[in-house]
Every structure is written in structure tokens, then in C-alpha cells.
Design a protein around this nucleic acid. Structure first.
Ligand SMILES: [Mn+2]
Ligand SMILES: [Mn+2]
Ligand SMILES: [Zn+2]
Ligand SMILES: [Zn+2]
Lengths: 133, 133
DNA sequence: CAATACTTTTGAACGATTCTAAAATAAAAA
DNA sequence: TTTTTATTTTAGAATCGTTCAAAAGTATTG
């Protein structure tokens, strides 16, 4: 186990300028593993923490963090995008009622029998979503 | 193998009035198994077939068909909803480049090790999406 | 410090989808 | 049939999550 990186270190190693907004958002996101956040949730969390940031910056930051590999974009709901602070390969329960996601470590689930891909194609990612109600 | 149902029979057994628009759309949808359509695609297909229908009706119809179990709603892309004419349990390849979906029969893929659900929860559906590029 | 590059912000724009309410059509009743 | 009623279609407006544009602000470099 490496010691956890500080928000500043995270931004530095992702080659992103450590601005006040990005530091605050990084702190809210990475203080805890396994968070599944929406833009709206993070924006409101920032507001309620007294962090002054615009919604556009929340979107910009989530997209930049995703592009840099600090977050993973999860598509489970047609009404809003989720961002996952766990970027390791893993799967999800999705609770339809509450909109909550819960991680399933990739090593507990095994898949067999993936058909051959059309040639030239390569697998980008395999998502297993167990929709629960 | 039962003989395939006609659009009229499909609508009748789903308890939907066989209007001109619904009959045309049903014909375009169910003439072929395993179609994965978006509202926009179906709307344009109707137009190019000379079928006069509004976009609102396309949306209404896709949603009604889904509610009646004639279609399945698939969430793979945050920019548009897909509807699947194959309502049996199965999985998908998703080609990120083209936005195409391709079925994977459920019996070729096996999953092992699904963790226990929180109590009270029941599985609604398990989606496996193999994202390919 | 000055110069440059990048970031944040606001409000407007976008695009997919849903809503509204009026006109059209299908089904049921007479 | 005709009349009545229930359902459906439609155009256009509204909604809502997300992105864009351009101006103002901030970090970085030398
Ligand atoms: Mn995105
Ligand atoms: Mn829907
Ligand atoms: Zn996760
Ligand atoms: Zn399918």
C-alpha cells in the first residue's frame, strides 16, 4: 500500500494546474474511494461546503479528470452521467430506485465465453451492470 | 418455431390501437429481429419510406412499445437512447466508433460469482456491455 | 515585474426528450 | 350509419443535462 496522494499531488501528476476550484473538487472526490458522483451532486456538495465554484467548472473538471484517468465515466442512467473515483477494473450494482451505484470487485465476478471480435476490433472495456430494485 | 406475428397482431396483443403510425413503425421495427434503433434513426427511416409520422409520435411509440414489453431500452451511450427489438435476455457488443450494437446470445456468456444482494433487493436485469473500438 | 498560457465564470446555446393542448382518428353506442 | 366517447397524433414550446463562447481572472515562466 502506497500512502494516499494529496489533492495537490494528484493534480500535479495529472499535469493539471492546482487551482482553488480543482483542489477543492479533488479533495471532495478523492478523500474517499469508491464514490459515484453526478455533476449535480458534486456541485451541490461544493456549495454546501462553502466552496465557490460554477457548475461549468464542475463539468469541466469532471471531464478533465476523466480524460486524465483520475475518474471513470459510467453510463447506467439516461438522465445523468456518473463519475467513478475507482478507476480500476470493476463492475456495479445499480439501484434503480435510488440511483445509487455499488462496486463489485472485478475478481469476484468471472465471465466465460466472450465471442470473437470482428477483426480489427479491440475490447475497450467490459461493463457488467446488475440492475437491482 | 411459431409463425411470426403480423404488425397488426403484435399491436392487438399488446392492447394498442392499430393506428396508421403504429402499424408503420411496428412494420419497420419487427420485420427484422435484432434491430437496435434510436428515435432519430426510426424517424428518418419512416420519412425515407414515405411514412408520415411526427417525431413526438416516434418517441411515444417507442416508449409505449417498451412499456408493453415489445422493445427493450438499452443504455450504452449518454447521447441517445437505443431500443432493442430483441427482448430476450442477451448481451451486447457496443462499437464506440459507429454507435452500432451487436447481440451476444445470453447462453454463450456465463457469469460466476455475483455477490449477495442487500436484503430486500431483487435483480431486475444483468447487462453485459463489451465496449469495442 | 511583464508576458504568456491556462482557467473560471456567466449566460447563451444545444440536443435529446417530454409536454401541451388542439385537431384527427378509432372504437363504442345508439 | 350516425353520434358520442376515448384515444392518438401533431406542432411547437418547454425541459433539462450538458457544452460553448467570450470576457475576466489566475497560475506559471523568465
Ligand atoms: Mn463526458
Ligand atoms: Mn424511456
Ligand atoms: Zn465503481
Ligand atoms: Zn440486442
Amino acid at each position: 500500500m502506497l500512502p494516499p496522494k494529496s489533492p495537490l499531488q494528484i493534480l500535479r501528476s495529472a499535469d493539471l494546474r492546482p487551482t482553488r476550484q480543482r483542489l477543492s473538487l479533488a479533495k471532495m472526490l478523492f478523500v474517499e474511494c469508491d464514490q459515484h458522483v453526478t455533476a449535480d451532486w458534486l456541485y451541490n456538495k461544493a456549495l454546501s461546503n462553502g466552496v465557490s465554484v460554477s457548475l461549468a467548472t464542475v463539468y469541466n473538471t469532471l471531464n478533465q479528470f476523466t480524460k486524465k484517468g483520475l475518474l471513470r465515466h459510467i453510463i447506467v442512467d439516461s438522465n445523468s452521467s456518473y463519475f467513478d473515483t475507482n478507476t480500476n477494473h470493476h463492475h456495479h450494482f445499480f439501484f434503480e430506485g435510488t440511483g445509487q451505484l455499488k462496486d463489485i470487485p472485478s475478481d469476484v465476478i468471472k465471465i466465460h465465453g466472450i465471442p470473437l471480435l470482428p477483426d480489427g476490433a479491440t475490447i475497450d472495456r467490459i461493463d457488467i451492470i446488475i440492475r437491482v430494485r
